[in-house]
Structures are given as structure tokens and as C-alpha cells.
Design a protein around this nucleic acid. Structure first.
Lengths: 185, 185
DNA sequence: CACGATATGGAGGATTCCTCCAGTTGGCAA
DNA sequence: TTGCCAACTGGAGGAATCCTCCATATCGTG
């Protein structure tokens, strides 16, 4: 990728983040192009669909979130770290227009090269948390990162409006309880 | 509501169900109007937004699903009935374009009169299931129908593509495990 | 420094949205 | 039954958006 292309690409992404935050995700793409000092065709070449642009805009933030796992695990028992991480995730997603959708795309994507990196990051983050919990005997062994990621993206989707964090937190509590290991019989 | 208005309304809904099933939910609304033998303005008067049309198209099917609760409760223990009902729900939603979104609108709606009835139906259905489970001592007492409905809509949203039912079923299993009552201490 | 490959921008055809408004129809009262 | 008015109806068309095409400008390598 040529240097000028990368520069434009970054400008578009930065503009997109700003415009999305201010006016939502359903604005005319021209607006993003204008704010990025870029022709509309350039925008379309870099991001052929609206979804690609939205996803691109949030990839960085999702990866940042994933980086917080180790810190959390150092402070909390694994099950609580998992819950805390998911709550932080949801809190971040709520109110950022379109981010829940981007998350869904990323979690569901099995090929799209652009999303693969983020996809892997999320799975890795969840894998670390689940693994720690399993080793500590507080989380069940048969829980798959895929399923938890799916649930996380679902809860995000259903709680993407601002002011829904409390409920989302409770739902995550339910889910994490389902992930706990309950010795019995 | 005048008789002819109701007739048109029904025709529009029927056409919408057909068109959505065949070509998805992102078609031009003219197509629905044409298939219903109705002017585009009539369609817009009955359903001011695309979302209203989508929701309207699926309201009936959601209520049908809610009616199945009693039957399920007669055959299965309450916790399994809950899981079975949710799985049936998801299976129905998957592949019906836009139905997951309609479900979300209905679950989140707190006022919109048109959705209120369906909203109440879903809450009632979940309430019956949770209550039965609580009385039987297999489900925890502090689980709110609101939270379970939210989770259900989230899982639908994250598994609205065909071929995701297996995973969705596992996620529901996790959730229901979180709802189980675990006597301890 | 010159050249090929690559990136760029903006105009514009095509599509879709959604609102008017003039005409039609249904249901109630007498 | 008949007449009346309120409510319903359809379609044309302005406005907005999408997305592609291609002539021009720019990069970076030999």
C-alpha cells in the first residue's frame, strides 16, 4: 500500500469515528469524505460498503479493549474478571453508534481478512479468561470462546442504546453464572 | 378503523411477509405496495417507517410462538421448557430476515402502542416459565423476565443468519444454566 | 530523473424515499 | 334507501443518497 493511500485511509477512519460519534452511523457518506478532505470515490475504494467503514472505524477500539484482559486478571479472580471485562465491553459499545454491529460482523466473520485480526484478538482474550477460570476451578471446562463471544455480541446488540447498561450488566451476570463450575453429585 | 382500511392493512402485511421471505428486508417499499395492490402512500400511512412495517409483519408470528408455552410446560420440567421455548424461538427467527430486529424493537419498546401487546405477551410467556421454574425449585427466584427477554433478543440478533442454530442453542444452554437454582452453602 | 503503476476526486445516472393533494369510498343518521 | 362527511386511497415527483466511471495527479523505483 502506497504511503499516500495509507494516509488517506487513516484520515477517513478518523473522520468516520468523529462523524459517527456526533451524528450516528446513518449519515451520508459524503459527510465523512468531506471531513476527511477526500473524494467520495476514495472513500468507496478503501471501504466498499458502509459496513466496512463502520467496522474499520471500531477495529482499533475493540483491540484496545482486548488488551485490558491481563490487567483485569491480575486484580480479580477469573470469573469476576470475565464478568468485569464483558461489562466494560458493553459499556464501551453502548452509545457508540454502530459499534455493536461492527462487533457482530467481527465475531461472525470467518474469512474477511480485514476483520480476522480483531476476530482472533477477541477469541484470544476470551480464551485467556476462560482458561484461567477453568484452571482455578471456578469456570466450567466445556465452555467455548466462540459461544461466549457470540453471547457478548448479542448482549451488545440488544443493549446498544444508552441507559441500558444496568440491565446489560444483569444479563452478563446471568451468563457468567451459567459459565461457573458447580461441583455436584 | 374503517373496514376497507383494515383490509388494506392486512393485505400489506401479507405482502410484506412474502416479500421479506423472498428477498429480504432491504427491498424498495414500492415492491410491497405493488404486491399488495395498494398505493405507496397507503403503505406509508399504515406504517410510517420501514421498521413499523417489519415489526407489524412479525407481530402475529411472535404471538403464536408465545402461545406454545403452556403446551411445553405440560410436557417438560420448567427449566427444560424454558430452554426448549427459547430454542424454538431462535429457530423461528433465524433466517426470517428482519425478524430479529422486530423482536428487539418489541422487547425494548416501552410505549409504542402497536408493539405493547406483543411486548406484554413475551413478558407474560417468560413470566409463566420462570414462575413455574421457581415454584418447582429449579430456577432462581431473582431472575427477571425483562432480563431474559433481553438476552433472548440479543441471542436472536447475533444468530439471525441461517446455519447458526447450533451455536445459538449452546448459548441458550449457558443462559439457562445461569438461571438454574443451585442450592449451596 | 523519468516512467509505470497506483491513487485520486468529482460529476452524474440510477435508485429510493416519502409527501402532497385531488378524487373515491365506506358507514351512519334520517 | 339515500345523502353526507369523514376517512381512505393512489400516484406523481422533488429531494436525497448511492456508487461508478475516467481523466488527472502522485508516488516511488530503476
Amino acid at each position: 500500500m502506497r504511503a499516500d493511500a495509507r494516509r488517506k485511509r487513516d484520515a477517513i477512519l478518523a473522520a468516520a469515528v468523529g462523524v459517527f460519534a456526533e451524528r450516528g452511523v446513518d449519515i451520508a457518506l459524503d459527510e465523512v469524505a468531506r471531513r476527511a478532505n477526500v473524494g467520495i470515490a476514495t472513500l468507496y475504494r478503501h471501504f466498499p460498503t458502509r459496513e466496512a467503514l463502520i467496522t474499520g472505524a471500531y477495529v482499533r477500539e475493540i483491540e484496545l479493549l482486548c488488551d485490558g484482559v491481563d490487567e483485569l486478571l491480575a486484580e480479580l479472580p477469573p470469573d469476576e474478571a470475565l464478568a468485569a471485562w464483558m461489562r466494560r465491553f458493553i459499556g464501551y459499545v453502548a452509545g457508540r453508534p454502530g459499534m455493536a454491529l461492527a462487533l457482530k460482523s467481527i465475531v461472525l466473520s470467518t474469512d474477511a481478512a480485514a476483520m480476522q485480526a480483531s476476530h482472533d484478538r477477541i477469541y484470544a482474550a476470551l480464551g485467556v479468561l476462560l482458561d484461567a477460570g477453568r484452571r482455578a476451578g471456578v469456570l466450567r471446562a466445556d465452555a467455548a470462546a466462540e459461544d461466549v463471544a457470540n453471547a457478548l455480541s448479542g448482549i451488545s446488540l440488544a443493549n446498544s442504546a444508552p441507559g441500558t447498561q444496568e440491565r446489560a450488566g444483569r444479563v452478563i451476570g446471568l451468563l457468567v453464572d451459567g459459565l461457573r463450575y458447580h461441583p455436584e453429585a
